[in-house]
Amino acid sequence: MLKLAVIPGAICGGCDVALASVGEKLLDVLKYYEIVYWPIAIDRKLSDLEAVEEIDALIYMGGVSTSEEYELARKLSSKSRVKVALGTCSVYGGIPGLNSLSSPLEVYKVNMGKSDHWIQGDSLGLPQLIPYMAYTDVVEPDILAPGCPPSGKVLDQLLEQLIEYAVKGEIEHKPILLGDPESLCNKCPRNPKTTKIKMPGIYRLHEVELDDKKCFLEQGILCMGPATRNICDHSCIKTNYPCTGCGGPLEWGGDSGVSMISSIGSILLVDSEKSLLEPGLTREIDKLRDYIGTFYRYTLRKSMLYKLRELKKGGLK
């Protein structure tokens, strides 16, 4: 039997639940693998895992937020043959990555500033906070399984890969980014396809009553579909909620935010550019708020913009 370990980092638990809910496919994997560690499901302690000399497949969920998480991620990865980043936090940093622009101390102060009572003293070995990272900042995994949480489709692909590894003993074409190599728009049930998409302006989610058939962009509602990899078969769009980009960019190494503003540039008010001119276009674009939270909600930590900021701060070579 091969050994499989599922490690939680800074998680919400969504990936745990998603993985536990895949059903029969998981049983197929268990024909080849023994789960040596998975705290939410298996009653085994960290000391049990430390006693394991080699791990065949390691699934890391969540980001890396403390010195202890960082050390553990490194230590376990170094004794693992196949490393999997499961979920958008692990792959791209996820929503907590939005705090990447602040220091951990600044974040801590905001949270604790709301308390009514403070006790001073020592920290009882509370692990040190480090600048938040994705698992992919710690090691280069072999398989990247994005999604918040990963969809059934991505998890099926992951489990197939794990079975293939168990049979063949190797993973080809690493790193493998799961999901389908196309934008969400490509097979969108709402995509008009025959006509060019025109964005009639920019509206916020609360400003319009959403049409449940029409392309969100054609309603003036930001939908991250054009800049997002198809990992989900449009689960949010089908509930009449625009894509917020949890699948990350189309390709590994891509960038959601710059791709998305490029797309918006192509479609926003395309039929009235020459009458609105620059001032008119500016007025409309000014309705766009919170670029970071809108375009990099899940991927800021791995984005070009984050790298640019680090460069600005002198943190990049």
């Binding site: 980001g63 403390t66 951990p104 974040v107 509370l126 692990p127």
Partner: peptide
């Protein structure tokens, strides 16, 4: 002791 740091009130 519960363990992690994600900081939603800041983000």
């Amino acid at each position: 002791q519960i363990m992690e740091f994600r900081g939603f009130e800041k983000l």
